[in-house]
Design a protein around this nucleic acid. Structure first.
Lengths: 208, 208
DNA sequence: TAAAATGAGAACAAAAAGAGAACATAATAA
DNA sequence: TTATTATGTTCTCTTTTTGTTCTCATTTTA
């Protein structure tokens, strides 16, 4: 397999990191514009190299399908060896404060699951009796369901996100803080959307 | 193999320690700038020597690949920079239970200091109110002194090790647990040997 | 003082990157 | 259907980047 040039890698990473920005797999022209390039032909040369490298799905002869990552490339993205995307901060009662530029944090395999994960930074003390403090980083496995007793990232009424213990019974969902100064919240199942469950945690004691 | 000159060693160490700062393997020009040099040709001479020494990957004839460390150099790098030795378990009242085969745990830069560090696994609940639970991994900076209020690994009377808050005053040393069910221990300074201070912490929520 | 090491800078060739045109086919609209 | 636009492909040409090889001056070291 031919090795990638710097520009080719750069284009692949752009695609990998910004794939959801495109409503549909982008065409050469669309990608050109996103990359600030003027020539479709030039881009095509790079895309061809990425196809040869097995990172982008080959254009299936007759169809005009856009540029799509291969399963392998997507897997690499999710697993990303050691590094996980650090996507933002989570504070009880607020939506996840997303970052403009997602960057990657190397995370020991120990702290991840074998499913796609991401990293959030905790704001607030709602889980302090579970040993999760303000400023800690948490590793979250991306998942839309949970078992009772797990700590979940839940989106409530579609606009506030929180990290809590979950207890689900028919007709209601309890989100339980680990802080005796705070109270358990009770919701209807349709109000609560699970965005992931806690699988790892990190804390730094250095003053940054 | 030719021996390295001082400057060559210096350049190699810079590269080794700052490799992740570069999004891509740096070119001669980029390295020049990082090093504050003005001449690409001069740097090239040093890089050539490092290639001969087997520390930097030879430029593959036709391709313009940047400056990359060899596998050997990366291994050396990983051993002391990204990965930390996991040396054993620490339980209050017992010496550190050393492991027969030390293995290495990759640790995010975030959780370490710039001094030598190692990793221990915590046994017991003596620090649970500080959010440090049984089974957690802690990153310890190797150091034989501490500031008051820091969490330290201390060896008492040369045979039991423990993780506690420290308060030092002339003539006595307090080792303070973060557990209201346990009591502060008071020692003479010569009884207490500091083995390191807490700089990072990790927890896995998976069932292993 | 002589040798070694370091650095600046110029000149060069190959590689990489980009622009733009031309073309064939696919998708879509009239 | 036919005309038109969109999309992928293949060229040529130019510019920029990058590794390489020099010469020469300056600094450091023995």
């Amino acid at each position: 397999m031919t090795e990638l040039t710097r520009r080719q890698r750069q284009i692949f990473e752009f695609l990998r990191d910004n794939y959801e920005r495109f409503a549909y797999p982008p065409t050469l022209d669309e990608l050109c514009e996103s990359l600030g390039m003027a020539s479709r032909g030039s881009l095509h040369k790079h895309i061809s190299a990425l196809i040869d490298a097995g990172l982008i799905e080959p254009f299936s002869g007759s169809k005009q399908t856009g540029i799509r990552l291969t399963a392998q490339a997507q897997r690499d993205y999710a697993a990303c060896e050691h590094a996980l995307p650090y996507v933002g901060k989570i504070a009880a009662g607020k939506p996840i404060e997303a970052l403009a530029d997602v960057h990657y944090l190397p995370v020991p395999a120990l702290l991840k699951s074998d499913k796609p994960c991401y990293v959030l930074q905790v704001k607030g003390d709602s889980m302090k009796e579970a040993g999760i403090f303000d400023g800690d980083w948490v590793v979250i496995e991306q998942r839309d369901y949970a078992r009772n007793g797990e700590i979940v990232v839940a989106l409530i009424d579609n606009h506030e996100a929180t990290l809590k213990y979950i207890e689900q019974s028919p007709g209601k969902v309890l989100l339980i803080p680990a802080n005796s100064a705070m109270t358990t919240q009770i919701y209807a199942p349709e109000q609560v959307q699970i965005q992931g469950i806690l699988v790892g945690q990190m804390r730094s004691y250095r003053v940054h």
